[in-house]
């Protein structure tokens, strides 16, 4: 793995309160790490240490061989940051903001990004006159205007409409294709599952689960929901034992069970339907969602 960011044993306290308690993670080129966790889990503190905004109490942070505290000037052009709450001067226009940030990164402003995020027609509008969603979109444009190799996105789609959210997802996917390493902190499970190559779930300052979205959802109870409806409803009243499944139950017109091996269970269901001379109307196999797994992990860990 060609790591762009490596974090080892990161610790940060505020007085007696331990916000980040020995966190390790790494992000490679072209990889998206989704950082999940309930409010107060330590995600933002961990990110702010990595971004150089906070000084960690312990631990090592390495961004392409540089330290965010010691090598701030060299790192600023490698890293793009979209803060959870960012702000610009109210009198600055959208175009001025693009020029301002590009000038500090010594690159050209990117009118194409303003266009894609629906900000081109707002070029002369002052920051104070933008809606919250427009401000968020501008913050994203400014975070990637210099084509960073490492991008931190903290709740990037909060406050965005559907179209902007979709455009942002497309931009993130493009950046990953171009080799940008991305750390995505979000509460949006669907977004995390869709975009992330790997996920880390933080709780009380620690990472309590880590892996690909499939690995995360497959661990724990890991039961897959199998629901079946038939034309004659002949399964409903029967005393059925399905392979690799817990005892089924009826939910409206569906026979439902939770399976440890959905392939075996489905095969068993089809055999039962055929044996009873019934006809299949609907068969659904649903993996546990990331949201369910997240709640399970956080409940167990807390």
């Amino acid at each position: 793995m060609n790591a762009v960011l490596t974090v080892d044993g990161l610790r940060k306290s505020y007085g007696d309160v331990v916000a980040v308690d020995g966190v390790d993670f790494a992000v490679a080129e072209g990889e998206i790490l989704g950082l999940l966790g309930p409010n107060g889990a330590g995600k933002t503190t961990a990110l702010e240490c990595v971004e150089g905004l906070l000084r960690p109490d312990e631990g090592r942070i390495d961004i392409k061989g540089l330290d965010p505290q010691r090598d701030r000037r060299r790192i600023r052009d490698l890293v793009g940051v979209q803060l959870q709450t960012s702000a610009l001067p109210g009198t600055m226009t959208v175009a001025e903001a693009a020029h301002f940030v590009a000038a500090y990164h010594d690159c050209e402003p990117r009118p194409d990004l303003l266009e894609r995020m629906g900000l081109a027609e707002l070029r002369t509008r002052k920051y104070s006159e933008l809606s919250v969603g427009q401000q968020r979109r501008l913050a994203l444009v400014l975070a990637i205007v210099h084509r960073p190799v490492l991008l931190f996105l903290d709740e990037p789609t909060a406050g965005l409409d559907v179209k902007s959210r979709r455009e942002l997802h497309a931009i993130i996917a493009e950046l990953r294709e171009q080799g940008t390493a991305i750390v995505l902190a979000t509460h949006d499970m669907a977004e995390a599952e869709k975009l992330s190559d790997r996920l880390a779930i933080m709780l009380a300052g620690r990472i309590v689960a880590e892996g690909t979205p499939r690995e995360i959802t497959a661990t724990g109870d890991g039961l897959t929901k199998v629901s079946v409806a038939t034309e004659g409803g002949l399964l409903a009243g029967a005393d059925i034992v399905l392979p690799a499944a817990q005892a089924p139950f009826i939910d409206e017109q569906y026979l439902v069970c939770f399976s440890t091996d959905p392939g075996e269970t489905v095969k068993g269901v089809l055999d039962e339907v055929a044996a009873r001379g019934d006809r299949l109307v609907d068969l659904r196999v649903e993996r546990p969602s990331l949201e369910e797994r997240f709640l399970e992990v956080t409940e167990v860990a807390s």
């Binding site: 940051v81 940030v101 500090y104």
Partner: peptide
């Protein structure tokens, strides 16, 4: 006001 609003914080991430 800029400090309270987080403007300097944003500036810092840009490298100002």
């Amino acid at each position: 006001e800029a400090r309270e609003a987080g403007i300097y914080r944003s500036f810092r991430t840009i490298g100002v």
